[in-house]
Simulated assay, not measured.
Amino acid sequence: MAREKPAELLTVRQVLDELGGISRRTFYRWRELRIAPRCIRLPNGELRVRRDVLNDWLDKRAEGAAS
């Protein structure tokens, strides 16, 4: 039985770059408002976003997307 490959974990910097270079401040504001993609907090306090979570988050915000 093949084991599933773990999801790619993106740093906040990588997420910011993928979102067109939004500011870190904007990202953390979105987190406060609970509209940012779900994050994982590592034991060292750093945040990561799973690639599949970011892709789903982006898909839900596409123009003309079904609710």
Rank of each mutant, 00 (worst) to 15 (best):
A62E: 09
D59R: 12
S67M: 11
D56F: 07
L47G: 08
R48Y: 03
P6L: 15
L19T: 01
R41S: 04
G20H: 12
R24P: 02
E46I: 00
V15K: 03
E63H: 09
R50C: 01
C39I: 01
I22F: 05
R24H: 12
R51S: 10
V12F: 04
A62P: 01
K60R: 14
L54N: 00
A2I: 13
R51K: 14
F27W: 09
A7W: 00
G20A: 13
E18G: 00
D56C: 09
I40V: 15
A2L: 15
W57H: 03
V53I: 13
N55D: 15
E63Q: 12
R61P: 03
S23F: 05
T11M: 01
G45Q: 07
E4W: 08
R13N: 10
D56R: 13
I40L: 15
W57Y: 07
I35P: 03
Q14F: 01
L33V: 00
A7L: 06
A2K: 14
R13V: 07
V15Q: 02
R50T: 02
R41P: 00
P37L: 12
V49E: 01
M1T: 08
T26L: 14
L16R: 00
F27I: 06
A2D: 15
R29Q: 11
E32K: 14
R38W: 00
G45D: 04
Y28H: 13
L54C: 07
R50H: 04
N44F: 02
N55Q: 14
I35V: 15
R25H: 11
R3V: 11
L9Y: 05
A66K: 11
N44G: 09
F27S: 05
E4A: 14
D52C: 09
L9R: 02
I22D: 00
I35R: 11
A65K: 06
V53S: 03
P6F: 07
D56T: 11
L10M: 14
T26M: 13
R13T: 14
L58K: 15
L16P: 02
R25E: 12
L47Y: 06
V15W: 02
N44R: 09
L54S: 02
R41Q: 10
S23I: 04
R29W: 07
Q14T: 09
R3F: 04
E32L: 12
W57Q: 00
A62K: 09
P43K: 12
R41H: 06
R24W: 08
E8L: 13
E18N: 01
D59P: 04
V53R: 03
L19I: 09
R34A: 13
Y28I: 10
K60C: 12
E46L: 07
V49Q: 04
R48T: 00
R51M: 10
E8Q: 14
P43G: 11
R48V: 00
A65Y: 09
D17G: 05
L58W: 07
R50M: 13
E8R: 13
R13P: 02
V53A: 10
Q14S: 10
L58P: 05
V12E: 08
E4G: 08
S23R: 09
E4M: 11
E32M: 10
R25W: 04
T26K: 13
F27V: 09
K60H: 12
R25C: 08
W30H: 03
R51C: 08
I22H: 02
G21S: 05
R25L: 11
D59C: 06
I40T: 15
L10S: 08
V53K: 05
R51Y: 05
I22G: 05
